[in-house]
Design a protein around this nucleic acid. Sequence first.
RNA 1: GCGGAUGUGGUGAAAUUGGUAGACACGCCAGACUUAGGAUCUGGUGCCGAGAGGUGUGCGGGUUCGAGUCCCUCCAUCCGCACCA
Length: 925
Amino acid sequence: MDYSFKAIEAKWRKLWQERNTYKVTEDPNKPKFYVLDMFPYPSGAGLHVGHPLGYIASDIYARYKRLKGFNVLHPMGYDSFGLPAEQYAIQTGQHPAITTKENINRYRQQLDLMGFSFDWSREVRTSDPSYYKWTQWIFKQLFNAYYDTSANKARDIKTLVAQFEKEGNLYTTALHDCEQQFDASAWNAFTTRQKEEVLQQYRMAYLAESWVNWCPALGTVLANDEIVNGVSERGGHPVEQKQMMQWSMRIKAYAERLLEGLERIDWTDALKEQQRNWIGKSKGASVHFGVKNSSSQIEVFTTRPDTIFGVSFMVLAPEHPLVNEISSADQATTIQAYQQQAALKTERDRQADVKNITGAFTGAYAIHPFTGEEIPIWIGDYVLASYGTGAVMAVPCGDQRDYDFAKHFGLPIPNIFADQDISESAFAEKEGVIANSDFLNGLDIKSATERVIAEMEKNGIGQGKTNYRLRDAVFSRQRYWGEPFPVYYKDGVPMLVDDTQLPVTLPEVDAYLPTENGEPPLARAPKSAWSCQLGDRMEYNTMPGWAGSSWYFLRYMDPYNDKAFADPEKLAYWKQVDLYIGGSEHATGHLLYARFWTKVLFDLGFISFDEPFSKLINQGMILGKSAIAFIGPDQKMYSSDMLPTNKEGFREVRILVDLLNDDDSIQLDALKTWQPQFTNQEFVSNAQGKVIVKREVDKMSKRWYNVVTPDDLCEKYGADTLRMYEMFLGPLEQSKPWDTKGITGVHSFLKKYWRLFHSKGTFKVLDNEPTPEALKSLHKTIKKLTDDLDRFSFNTGVSSFMICVNELTEQKCNNRLILEQLTILMAPYAPHICEEIWSLIHPEASSIFNESYPIFNPAFLQESTFDYPVSFNGKMRFKLSLDLSLTATEVEAVVLSKPETQKWLEGKSPKKVIVVHGKIVNIVL
RNA sequence: GCGGAUGUGGUGAAAUUGGUAGACACGCCAGACUUAGGAUCUGGUGCCGAGAGGUGUGCGGGUUCGAGUCCCUCCAUCCGCACCA
């Protein structure tokens, strides 16, 4: 009987579904294990071979853990709100829900082909009202929370309100943006609206006028992580800075804990560094500078307070609120011109224009807090309004940007470093001795920093401060296809929709575009279209893409619960995700936000853990190999080995990779029917009559015509072959180009495995006594496989199976015990074929995945002899089989007595002989 | 500029604590079987060399009896961040 993978795979897909093989329920008698994939956004393009890479790895691991006796939660779902469906809706008028559903069906079909062990009964979709009901509910918890810096946790806003009623905000330890101070009687005298305006400055989810990244082409704001190189991540449209009233999340409150938590989780250093970098902690001091002839003060943040005596000017961001107030009359025009010019520049222009130094003098002077000297105040767009305080004390001798600014505008550059030459550039090293600095003279940087901060704190000039680059996350989007907020407005005051009225479902609209007044699409919905109609109006913004994905891993634990986002007992059973697999592109988006929400839910007592993903692996990207053909000036297509040296007038065209033969030659007839432009194409073929293309590695994408789909490969080789081949390609974390050629090796391996059980076309295993060789092959494989899986080395696992099958074939082994255990070992990698084999051995069994994993027995690997490699000066020359009972001294004696050794000694006597028992012999000449 | 990762045959790669470099595959070469084969099987295959042998893990140094692995300098590629005070 041949290995008819198609029939086998179809059969088991059906039976697994019928038998609910992968359904899992909480079982207190078993240890749990939670294996999660980053759920996909179901795009219209479907899956290519790169997408399932991580799913295959997680599936293998989930099945392995299950065979090891764990109760494994391994769910899948869809991150189904998002821009592409909405853009498509704008173009076609088709409701995004319909497109999304179609795409999900297509994804599901493709995923099913691969034989994953997902418990589909737990599927979640973020765009499903029964799901986003709880996204809205969590938003409400965030709205009703503030951050208490003394307890270092989020708390119910009621606690804060009670405090305000008792003593105002004079002694509060809550984190806030509130500049107003009030006592209890003042608070109690506030109107509802005034109270809410104050509370907004404390809430974890808050409404505020803030600088946002506005993308005019998409008609919405974007979070920082949604912008790549100054343009939108989706679509690549330009982004500008704009002040708008927006919902935000006070993620800054968690900066330190997000940093600290990284110490406790098993993620790669690369990813942790990316998050650390994004959070951007820097220690320094906040210093207040008085302004001449003004009561205003300028607060600056500096990481180098030790250089305070080197300050020769100050620079404010053009948008700094004090600029207009302090500018002198004669400079006002210049300043305004500069401000306008800066405002016109997009973030991208500013970035592109780093070398171009610009700025303007305000005409005002600051007073140096220690020397009392007058310091000119400038504005310049190299100072960012959104970082620190939007103002810097410029120390040109110690900072290159300040140095360049000073040179450009002819400002003084006093040197405060002993023995440092600053005639060419600033001295920015973190080691040195301070000079010309009054009480800091002679101190090194570290002690000077401590000393000056102490002095500042004593005189009330400033204090030590830690600053973070992380900014609060903008949470509203002016889009249709997202979660509506559970918020309405009454007299301009935002109010929460009551839990009983959740979910606030997405209302139908007549178009998925902003209104004429520039309001978000939801403003188009008539009152009657809303699931609830409260106050003067509902909130028209929707939540960003990361809202639903920040907590979905919790919903899998209890996806149908309509009383809570998940049952506390189930949450307590499954806890964190033990293994999370997905791409590294989410480093500063999803992975940060999910950690943030988890910490808030933890603080508020809803869950018992404050990190969502205890181990995370980033799978590498599978790249495509594009096919490039050359069209000559004569419009003929040249085989790449027929190109003239002078390629002038030649152009390159990309050809669909499906049109290639294995030797990279084009199937010419297929090409002619592929696109009309090639219908009458003429060719310059090579000596073999072929037209060969050049292969180039690109991202796998439709636009490069280099997409390889899992469907085609499943059809041709079967899912088991594809699964194993994807693992065999190389280490999971590594990016690598896809090359279908090698797949035949894995496919013939599976056939070879199949043949172990079949002699002369019939299935046959024997109950004889296993041979020591077979036991050795098996147990070597058990050990290797377990080690490999424990370190997520899936590629070497596949090799081990090949070695084992090669050895057993060599030994003509068809012993039942050996082959059974091998089959269980292989089942996580190749579930269909192994399940089929298992059913042939055990017709009564419902699934191989109810068996238990083989146990390694070192006794079978014990050897009595060892082939010692004998090296001379570290270079291996020959091998010598010796009894392992020989001691090192005995080994040395035997080795030295051998004629082989004498030959390599060339009459010399060895200086030294090193014998490592059971490892190596090295003779030093 | 800062941070991270990676450099090993024609190709994908392996070598887990310093101990036989290139496992396992693809490809290629030779052969067997075959009407045929994109089937199956056998043997070979880092490079130089007829051979003995030499040489070899991005470059250059170092530590060691012994280095792909540890240390230092440099180079290249990829990724992330970036006028962050």
